[in-house]
């Protein structure tokens, strides 16, 4: 198959738009989080920069860019410099497999609204989510600070606790959709979203992705009450900003994944598909913020307990139940 210049141009345009939208959304999610947390605490939140504080992300960006990029003298220089990118890039790469709208037709061509329709999209996501933790672990190790190291170790320990249940909670979805491709999974939900068939898997997935993006109640690698700022204690300026933006990109991407796997993807009545996708993803992101304003942080061992002794067995039972149900439905 040879790609015509138009195809390449369309693809590049898609890539640019997605990149821009994701980064802008991540920046505004920071603002939204600060405002919503403020409302939860009966405050108003940042509302000084521009109307309703809408230019606050810009001000934050200028502040981060003009701050000193400090490298501790005993740090492992190159790993220290690379780690923030290693944390942010997998987050944004994951979005490549998420279909965010119905295919549209431009100049007589079908343009699917996703970057890459991998037939192993689910595995791609699971692989990237494991890679993302390296940024955190390496950053924590390379900082040569006890707080960062503890944060990095906790991040790894957290990964092995939630990742299994996250993967297992997706197995019923794959069983229902008969495919690893996210496009096929969305198509399978054109009438009924999978949350109706798989509420348990959805809850397990939601808890696991909260742990995946290291947010309260699972912000154990950061744990500012115990570890100063955890794995990014030694980072400053835009390198800290990358970790930070990576976290928010992760929220958006995981919101999109929850939408794709359980909430019917871009399917929905009346509104255009892209709008439905955005609404559903932002609803998940809102839930994350709401949860941050509500729950306290779990202890290290409580997360292990939850992951290994509750969520993983529950997910396994759920898989068995789904299999039994599918077999019954087939016969």
């Amino acid at each position: 198959m040879t790609a015509s210049p138009l195809d390449i141009a369309l693809f590049a345009a898609k890539l640019g738009v997605v990149f821009f939208v994701i980064l802008t959304m991540a920046a505004y999610l920071v603002l939204a989080e600060r405002r919503i947390l403020a409302w939860i605490q009966d405050r108003k939140g940042p509302n000084r920069v521009g109307p309703f504080g809408m230019l606050q992300p810009l001000a934050d960006l200028i502040k981060l860019l003009t701050k000193e990029d400090f490298i501790p003298s005993a740090a492992d220089r190159w790993l220290f410099l690379l780690a923030p990118a290693m944390a942010a890039i997998p987050a944004i790469l994951t979005f490549a497999v998420i279909p965010f709208g119905a295919p549209i037709t431009i100049a007589g061509r079908q343009v699917p609204l996703l970057i890459a329709d991998l037939n192993v999209g689910v595995l791609f996501f699971l692989a990237l989510s494991s890679i993302a933790v390296y940024g955190m672990a390496i950053g924590g190790w390379a900082s040569n600070s006890k707080y960062s190291l503890l944060g990095g170790i906790r991040g790894l320990a957290q990964l092995i606790s939630y990742e299994l249940s996250m993967g297992l909670s997706l197995v019923p979805v794959i069983m229902l959709a008969h495919s690893f491709s996210l496009t096929a999974i969305v198509d399978a939900q054109s009438t009924v979203p999978f949350i109706v068939y798989q509420p348990v898997a959805f809850i397990i997935f939601l808890i696991s992705i909260t742990a995946e993006c290291k947010r309260i109640p699972f912000d154990i690698p950061e744990a500012e009450g115990e570890l100063v700022a955890g794995f990014h204690t030694e980072y400053s300026g835009m390198r800290f900003g990358l970790f930070f933006v990576g976290e928010y990109i992760n929220i958006i991407v995981l919101g999109g994944l929850a939408t794709t796997f359980f909430l019917g993807g871009w399917h929905g009545p009346f509104l255009p598909p892209v709008v439905w996708f955005t609404i559903k993803s932002l609803a998940v992101a809102f839930f994350f913020i709401w949860m941050r304003g509500t729950l306290p942080r779990l202890r290290y061992d409580q997360l292990m307990h939850l992951g290994w002794k509750v969520l993983t067995p529950l997910a396994l039972v759920n898989i068995l139940a789904t299999g039994w149900w599918l077999a019954l439905a087939a016969s």
Partner: peptide, 21 residues
Amino acid sequence: AIIAGFGVTLHHMLRRPVTIQ
């Protein structure tokens, strides 16, 4: 208790902030 906690925060989210600008 967790669901009640979510209710409390939602209630406060919809309340008028006490901030004086």
